[in-house]
Computed example of a mutant assay.
Amino acid sequence: MKLPNNAFVAILDGETFLLMKNTSSNESEPTLEKASNPDLDPTNFSAGVKHQDDGGQKTGSTDLNELAHAAAAANWLNTKAIAGAFDHIAIIADPKSLGEMRRHYHGELKSRLVGEIDKTLTGESTQRIEAAIAKA
Protein backbone atom coordinates (compact mmCIF):
# COMPACT_ATOMS: atom_id res chain seq x y z
CA MET A 1 0.00 0.00 0.00
CA LYS A 2 1.25 3.45 -0.80
CA LEU A 3 1.01 5.65 2.28
CA PRO A 4 1.35 9.40 1.64
CA ASN A 5 3.53 11.59 3.82
CA ASN A 6 1.62 12.82 6.89
CA ALA A 7 -1.03 10.12 6.46
CA PHE A 8 -2.38 8.66 9.67
CA VAL A 9 -2.64 4.98 10.46
CA ALA A 10 -5.29 3.75 12.89
CA ILE A 11 -4.28 0.44 14.47
CA LEU A 12 -6.88 -1.29 16.60
CA ASP A 13 -8.43 -4.42 17.94
CA GLY A 14 -11.34 -4.95 20.29
CA GLU A 15 -9.57 -3.24 23.19
CA THR A 16 -6.74 -1.06 21.86
CA PHE A 17 -6.70 1.98 19.57
CA LEU A 18 -3.42 3.55 18.50
CA LEU A 19 -2.96 6.36 16.01
CA MET A 20 0.35 6.72 14.14
CA LYS A 21 1.56 9.16 11.49
CA ASN A 22 3.75 8.51 8.45
CA THR A 23 6.76 10.84 8.37
CA SER A 24 8.40 9.29 5.31
CA SER A 25 8.38 11.13 1.99
CA ASN A 26 8.64 7.76 0.20
CA GLU A 27 5.08 6.41 -0.07
CA SER A 28 6.35 2.84 -0.51
CA GLU A 29 8.48 2.86 2.66
CA PRO A 30 6.48 4.24 5.59
CA THR A 31 8.15 5.55 8.73
CA LEU A 32 5.61 5.68 11.54
CA GLU A 33 5.61 7.77 14.68
CA LYS A 34 3.09 7.52 17.48
CA ALA A 35 0.50 10.29 17.23
CA SER A 36 -1.90 9.42 20.07
CA ASN A 37 -3.94 6.85 21.93
CA PRO A 38 -7.48 8.18 21.52
CA ASP A 39 -9.69 7.78 24.56
CA LEU A 40 -12.91 6.15 23.42
CA ASP A 41 -16.29 5.82 25.07
CA PRO A 42 -17.58 2.50 23.66
CA THR A 43 -21.27 2.97 24.28
CA ASN A 44 -22.70 1.80 20.96
CA PHE A 45 -23.74 -1.69 22.02
CA SER A 46 -26.25 -1.80 19.20
CA ALA A 47 -23.18 -2.48 17.07
CA GLY A 48 -23.34 -6.12 18.08
CA VAL A 49 -27.01 -6.69 17.35
CA LYS A 50 -26.11 -8.11 13.95
CA HIS A 51 -23.83 -10.63 15.68
CA GLN A 52 -26.41 -11.97 18.13
CA ASP A 53 -26.64 -15.32 16.36
CA ASP A 54 -26.93 -18.63 18.22
CA GLY A 55 -23.56 -19.88 16.98
CA GLY A 56 -21.66 -16.84 18.18
CA GLN A 57 -23.39 -16.92 21.55
CA LYS A 58 -22.72 -20.65 22.08
CA THR A 59 -19.03 -20.46 21.20
CA GLY A 60 -18.47 -17.11 22.90
CA SER A 61 -17.02 -15.68 19.69
CA THR A 62 -19.21 -12.55 19.86
CA ASP A 63 -17.94 -9.96 22.33
CA LEU A 64 -20.23 -6.95 22.38
CA ASN A 65 -17.60 -4.85 24.19
CA GLU A 66 -15.14 -5.42 21.35
CA LEU A 67 -17.73 -4.52 18.72
CA ALA A 68 -18.73 -1.39 20.66
CA HIS A 69 -15.04 -0.43 20.79
CA ALA A 70 -14.78 -0.78 17.00
CA ALA A 71 -17.92 1.33 16.51
CA ALA A 72 -16.53 4.00 18.86
CA ALA A 73 -13.23 4.03 16.94
CA ALA A 74 -15.09 4.50 13.64
CA ASN A 75 -17.12 7.33 15.14
CA TRP A 76 -13.95 9.00 16.47
CA LEU A 77 -12.33 8.74 13.02
CA ASN A 78 -15.51 10.06 11.38
CA THR A 79 -15.45 13.13 13.63
CA LYS A 80 -11.79 13.81 12.82
CA ALA A 81 -12.34 13.31 9.08
CA ILE A 82 -15.30 15.69 9.05
CA ALA A 83 -13.24 18.26 10.97
CA GLY A 84 -10.42 17.95 8.40
CA ALA A 85 -7.88 16.67 10.95
CA PHE A 86 -6.24 14.47 8.30
CA ASP A 87 -6.14 14.14 4.53
CA HIS A 88 -5.27 10.45 4.32
CA ILE A 89 -5.70 7.49 6.64
CA ALA A 90 -5.09 3.75 6.60
CA ILE A 91 -6.85 1.42 9.01
CA ILE A 92 -5.37 -1.78 10.39
CA ALA A 93 -7.70 -3.91 12.50
CA ASP A 94 -8.57 -7.50 13.25
CA PRO A 95 -11.17 -8.80 10.77
CA LYS A 96 -14.15 -8.66 13.16
CA SER A 97 -13.39 -5.09 14.29
CA LEU A 98 -12.73 -3.94 10.74
CA GLY A 99 -16.03 -5.41 9.59
CA GLU A 100 -17.88 -3.59 12.35
CA MET A 101 -16.06 -0.33 11.63
CA ARG A 102 -17.01 -0.43 7.96
CA ARG A 103 -20.67 -0.36 8.95
CA HIS A 104 -20.06 3.04 10.59
CA TYR A 105 -17.79 4.79 8.07
CA HIS A 106 -18.98 8.28 7.16
CA GLY A 107 -18.58 9.36 3.52
CA GLU A 108 -15.89 11.86 4.53
CA LEU A 109 -13.84 9.11 6.18
CA LYS A 110 -14.28 6.86 3.14
CA SER A 111 -12.99 9.64 0.87
CA ARG A 112 -9.77 9.93 2.92
CA LEU A 113 -9.18 6.19 3.30
CA VAL A 114 -6.08 5.01 1.39
CA GLY A 115 -6.31 1.39 2.48
CA GLU A 116 -7.23 -1.23 5.05
CA ILE A 117 -5.40 -4.24 6.42
CA ASP A 118 -7.49 -6.91 8.14
CA LYS A 119 -4.89 -8.19 10.56
CA THR A 120 -4.27 -7.88 14.29
CA LEU A 121 -1.11 -5.78 14.66
CA THR A 122 -1.77 -4.10 18.01
CA GLY A 123 1.14 -4.83 20.29
CA GLU A 124 3.51 -5.40 17.37
CA SER A 125 6.67 -3.40 16.80
CA THR A 126 6.59 -0.28 14.66
CA GLN A 127 8.89 -2.00 12.17
CA ARG A 128 6.48 -4.91 11.78
CA ILE A 129 3.56 -2.52 11.20
CA GLU A 130 5.59 -0.56 8.64
CA ALA A 131 6.49 -3.81 6.86
CA ALA A 132 2.82 -4.90 6.76
CA ILE A 133 1.83 -1.57 5.20
CA ALA A 134 4.66 -1.72 2.65
CA LYS A 135 3.67 -5.29 1.70
CA ALA A 136 -0.08 -4.57 1.43
Rank of each mutant, 00 (worst) to 15 (best):
D87M: 03
D53W: 09
T79Q: 10
T122C: 09
E29S: 14
L3M: 03
S111E: 04
A73R: 10
I82E: 15
M101R: 02
I11A: 00
D53K: 10
P30A: 01
L40C: 04
S24W: 07
Y105G: 05
I82R: 12
D63I: 11
S36E: 09
P38T: 06
P95H: 05
N44L: 03
T79I: 03
M20A: 15
N78L: 03
R128I: 10
G55D: 11
H104P: 04
A83N: 15
Q52H: 08
P38L: 05
K58W: 08
K21M: 11
M1K: 07
Q52L: 15
S46N: 15
L98N: 01
A73G: 11
E124I: 02
S46R: 15
G115S: 02
Y105R: 05
S46D: 14
N78D: 09
A81G: 04
D54G: 00
A136G: 08
T122Q: 06
V9G: 00
K50W: 13
Y105A: 04
S97T: 03
I92C: 00
I129T: 00
L67H: 00
A90D: 09
H88Y: 00
P30Q: 09
K119V: 00
L40Y: 06
S125F: 13
I11N: 05
G107L: 10
T79V: 10
I117K: 02
N6L: 06
K110H: 08
A83E: 11
M20I: 01
A83F: 07
R128E: 12
P30F: 04
D39Y: 11
Q127W: 10
T79H: 13
L113F: 03
I133M: 05
A47G: 11
I117N: 01
A47V: 10
E29Y: 09
A7G: 02
L40S: 07
N78A: 08
S97W: 00
I129N: 00
F8M: 01
N6K: 13
G48M: 03
K34V: 13
L3W: 01
S25Y: 13
I11Y: 03
L113V: 08
A73W: 02
A70P: 05
A132F: 12
K21Y: 07
Q52G: 05
D39L: 12
T23Q: 13
P38W: 01
T126H: 02
G48K: 04
G60E: 02
I117C: 05
P38C: 06
N75R: 08
G115R: 07
E27T: 10
Q127S: 14
H106D: 13
T120K: 15
A72N: 05
S25M: 12
D118A: 15
G56D: 11
N44V: 08
A35M: 08
L64F: 15
D41V: 09
K96D: 12
I91G: 00
T126N: 07
E15C: 08
L18E: 11
D39M: 11
L98A: 13
I133N: 03
